[in-house]
Simulated assay, not measured.
Amino acid sequence: MQCDYFDAGTCRSCTEMGVPYLVQVARKEEHLRHQLSAFPGVEWLPSFSAAESGFRNKAKMVVSGDSVSPTLGILDADGLGVDLRACGLCSPGLTAAFPVLADFISSAGLTPYDVPRRQGELKYIILTESPDGEFMLRFVLRSTLQLARLRDTLPRLQAALPTAVVISANIHPEHKATLEGEEEIILTAQESLPMRLDALTLHLRTRSFFQTNTAVARELYRQGTVWVDEVSPASLWDLYCGVGGFALHAARPDREVTGIEVSAEAVASARLSAEEAGLTRTDFVTADATTFVRDAGSVPDLVIVNPPRRGLGAELAGLLQNSGVRHVLYSSCNAVSLAKDLARMPGLSPVKVRLMDMFPQSHHYETMVLLERRDA
């Protein structure tokens, strides 16, 4: 992939830009094998990769400049806006929407936030595209000062971008390097974005997590489902389940499935998907994963874990190690923390591993590991 922004030194976010894509994947495979070198006898499945460009379904764009000529992209070292509307990582749908949004910001008179001066209102736009080409659009504002103006001009935006089916305003009053605040105001009748993956539709609400690479997410859930069906558990937990991707795909009429997620909004989304799919033996619980496992009186046949980059940590890994669970399916976005967690669970041996290249042009990747208890 060639990038004018990278070549000009305007943006260096993609650490592997310019490296041939097959070389990128080979480097990731080498890194993963090194991290898991303490676990011999593993079956290594072929790595999965999709497009090396145009794969991102979500864009988090800093809004800067002024209302006449806003920039959408990142900030430079001085806190000034760098426009990245033609970023090659973004899907064609996202790229086509950026000029429409820039024009709307100007016509609506929304004032971009000036970081050095701490003035202005509009900090970010967060745009997510569904597999069907619909959008969730979130305006991150410093306050509610321009909220009335945003509401008044909403029909104009919906006419210009009719595929934006969910639009909201997030209120983020603090001056710090975080993306969003606690208050979310939905401006449309529709509150969730349908994410159709094969025969299953997941529902994404404004503050719920979804993988940024739809093609790889689809394969991630397919592979997880294959491994779950191979061991055929009668019951399973999906820890850190998010909007229920793994749990819902692995659900069967004769299988008890419970998803555990700390975000109540994500749990509401997962429950809606389960109801639409008629999955009467699938439920979702709002709870901290470690607390849930620690307080549970018994364990299922299989546990799926998809933790954040920090991994499971010593306590949760120890609870799984001592639980007697027969199989664990671990989806990891950080091979270093993955290796640490596997070492904390010596009774659960990795039997299958697959690399999923979720993040081309970077050194990041996703790893799937199937663990089997060998200490019985």
Rank of each mutant, 00 (worst) to 15 (best):
D132F: 00
R222H: 03
T10M: 13
A296P: 00
S69T: 11
A251D: 02
T201I: 10
D76A: 01
F55D: 03
R373M: 13
A296W: 04
Q119Y: 11
G347K: 00
S232F: 08
A8E: 09
S337C: 04
A164Q: 02
A50K: 04
A160N: 13
T15G: 08
M61P: 12
S106P: 10
D357Q: 07
Y221K: 01
H327S: 15
L200Q: 07
F48T: 03
L45H: 11
R309F: 14
E372S: 13
V369N: 03
A177D: 05
P92F: 02
L187V: 06
N170V: 04
G318M: 07
Q35Y: 13
R142E: 08
S331M: 05
S67P: 10
L202C: 12
G54E: 11
D375H: 12
M358T: 02
P155C: 11
S37F: 04
A102C: 07
D114P: 01
L248P: 01
I74N: 08
Q24A: 03
N306V: 06
E265K: 07
S192C: 13
V100H: 06
D4G: 09
I304E: 01
R310P: 05
D295H: 08
L279F: 09
E275Y: 01
G181N: 05
F210E: 00
G88L: 15
S47T: 15
I304F: 04
L161R: 01
V231C: 11
Q223K: 14
L370F: 07
L220F: 09
G347W: 04
G259N: 12
E180Q: 15
N170I: 06
L32S: 04
E315F: 14
H364V: 07
G245I: 08
V68D: 13
L316M: 10
R196C: 15
K176A: 14
E256T: 05
M1P: 13
L89W: 02
L101V: 03
A289E: 07
V369Y: 01
E315W: 13
A277T: 06
L141Y: 05
G324I: 11
E30S: 15
E275K: 09
A335K: 00
Q361H: 15
Y365G: 09
K340C: 13
Q2F: 15
L370D: 06
T212R: 13
A189D: 14
Y365N: 11
L338F: 06
E134T: 06
A159G: 14
N306L: 03
R85I: 14
S107Q: 15
M61L: 15
S64V: 10
L187P: 01
V351W: 07
G224E: 05
S64T: 12
V19A: 04
L319P: 11
M61N: 08
I126Y: 01
G9W: 09
H364T: 11
A96D: 12
K340I: 14
E265L: 10
D83S: 11
K60G: 11
G242I: 00
M61A: 08
D76Q: 03
P194Q: 00
F246S: 05
A96L: 12
R56E: 10
D7C: 13
P99Y: 10
K60Q: 15
F104K: 10
E276L: 08
Q24M: 08
L145Y: 13
E184W: 05
A343I: 11
